[in-house]
Design a protein around this nucleic acid. Sequence first.
DNA 1: GACACAGTTCGGCGTGCGCCGACGCGTCGG
DNA 2: CCGACGCGTCGGCGCACGCCGAACTGTGTC
Lengths: 226, 226
Amino acid sequence: METIALAEVAAVLADPSRAAMCLALLDGRAWTVGELARAAGVAASTASEHVSRLRDAGFVASVKQGRHNYVRIADPRVAELIEHLAQHAGHRPVSGLRSSLRVRKLEYARTCYDHLAGTVGVALRDGMLRTGMVDSGDGLALTGHGRDVLGELGVEVPAGTRRPLLRDCLDWTERREHLAGAVPASVLSRAVAAGWVSRDEHRAVRILPAAREPFGRLGVELSEFS
Amino acid sequence: METIALAEVAAVLADPSRAAMCLALLDGRAWTVGELARAAGVAASTASEHVSRLRDAGFVASVKQGRHNYVRIADPRVAELIEHLAQHAGHRPVSGLRSSLRVRKLEYARTCYDHLAGTVGVALRDGMLRTGMVDSGDGLALTGHGRDVLGELGVEVPAGTRRPLLRDCLDWTERREHLAGAVPASVLSRAVAAGWVSRDEHRAVRILPAAREPFGRLGVELSEFS
DNA sequence: GACACAGTTCGGCGTGCGCCGACGCGTCGG
DNA sequence: CCGACGCGTCGGCGCACGCCGAACTGTGTC
């Protein structure tokens, strides 16, 4: 009974094309069916079938707009699920990930669904802990000082949401933890809106000069990386 | 490159027989290959092949003992991964789950890999929060009072482990959260060792009379349920 | 040493499903 | 109004893989 449900849900991710689409969608943006087809390397008709199946399984949601069909991840929980699965897949083959330039870029700064990851993401976690904005006594918590600094930077702290404010998320390349949750999501959207960073191709993030001051307030010295 | 890894890992869970085996193994015990074959309803030879595949993928570990091969979940992280996946599978079809007697039993008390779940699991979370053993200000934390009570009950609080002491885990039947993590795991193993509860068939847990006093200390009044 | 039994390997069978190309439909642009 | 384009549906092809039974290995039992 319920056992086949697990298999069905896993089967949806078990296809290389659908898996590629899901990983692409982890950047948090809405992709068209055609873009997903190119990303996965299949015909548009095939991609359309895959999107239907992902939608039926509750992994993605889609909205029609003119002649385009925009597809995005249905829910942050789904994004976490896929991240966890990819993480389990990733930590076995140590592989030569650290080679291509594009990967190098992703190592430095990228998005993990709706928050920052990569070197910068890890540094953000370190910085917020070091400056006392976040406390980690068996579970992560935002301190009063943390709330103050975020307020001054114009980052809204969501209230009354079921989503945890702060969660640890094991990093794909760094093999260390970065911050996930409602607060880091809010930090990223503020950073984009304020021109501190810009979202680049795929999941890469470009750090702009304007980031120096606000990121310093968060305990991240960008000059340390280059 | 990395995209096919995700598909490969999902494909391992995508088979109904392997999925059934994994769900069975979530009770935390070591099963023989033959037992898994019967649980999944396939021939022993087929089950053997499935176990090989699960082992290669890092989902299970196996040890040979005499002419038996004992199989268990490789790692708590894997157990959580499967729980998350099953959870995503479960919350769509509302279905008439609440029918059979066996399911009723599982609703009341069962294991979620290595800790208590079901009605009792949820009550444990409520009780430990209400009695001030656990604090939940943006993240769960064990209080000093909590450490004291656990100490008096003979429950060891693991130290120096990477695993979080307390995590929330959304419950399958109750649709509410119960406690996961190192501390709840320790509570369950102590409860079994001390004869407060016994592990029953499948994932069911039988609450014994000796549980009344220690569970009361944890804020759970067993008489409230029957 | 003979037998029973758990597990593994192997060959062969059946089928489910991912793929494409062709076609139809709706939207946008000249 | 007509062509270009994005998307969805359908039919047919081919491969991958889950299944079993038979044979073999290794381990306990009488």
